[in-house]
């Protein structure tokens, strides 16, 4: 994978994990499968689980253990109040950034069109 894609992806992973958990309580395996569905993120267990551990340590995510028929207790993740606040801030920032980049791209494509005429 190209370096710039890796760098961009790294910054977005925590944002994506928080947003995925904000939809409702979820467990690790389910979360990984869901994020794997976003092909561009190229998510694997070794990227998601360390982020989850760190988010828990930082107080953004809380864990609830529930018995599982498949083996050890299933670990359910949900956002804490701090996590919801952080996710909200990140979403606001992302929306602003997205709009600004979209406007920038629109301006530059407009200039290219004018130049080609």
């Amino acid at each position: 994978m190209k370096t710039w894609i890796t760098q961009l992806r790294k910054g977005l992973l925590e944002f994506c994990v928080l947003n995925a958990i904000s939809c409702g309580e979820t467990y690790g395996y389910e979360l990984v499968q869901r994020l794997k569905g976003i092909q561009q993120l190229a998510v694997t267990e070794s990227t998601v689980y360390p982020i989850l551990s760190r988010l828990k340590q930082d107080g953004f995510v809380k864990v609830r253990d529930a018995p599982s028929t498949s083996g050890p207790p299933r670990r359910y993740f949900s956002l804490t109040a701090l996590g919801r606040q952080r996710t909200g801030e990140m979403n606001v920032y992302w929306d602003g950034l997205y709009d600004a980049i979209a406007a920038l791209r629109e301006t530059s494509s407009g200039r290219q069109d004018n130049a080609s005429q």
Binding site: Y49, S53, G71
Partner: peptide, 27 residues
Amino acid sequence: MPAQEQRDLLRQLESHIHEALAARTGG
């Protein structure tokens, strides 16, 4: 990695493996 994060990560991985096994074998 801090010790608590290590323990969390290993527990999550163990749980992940068992979930993946259950999905594969149908329980």
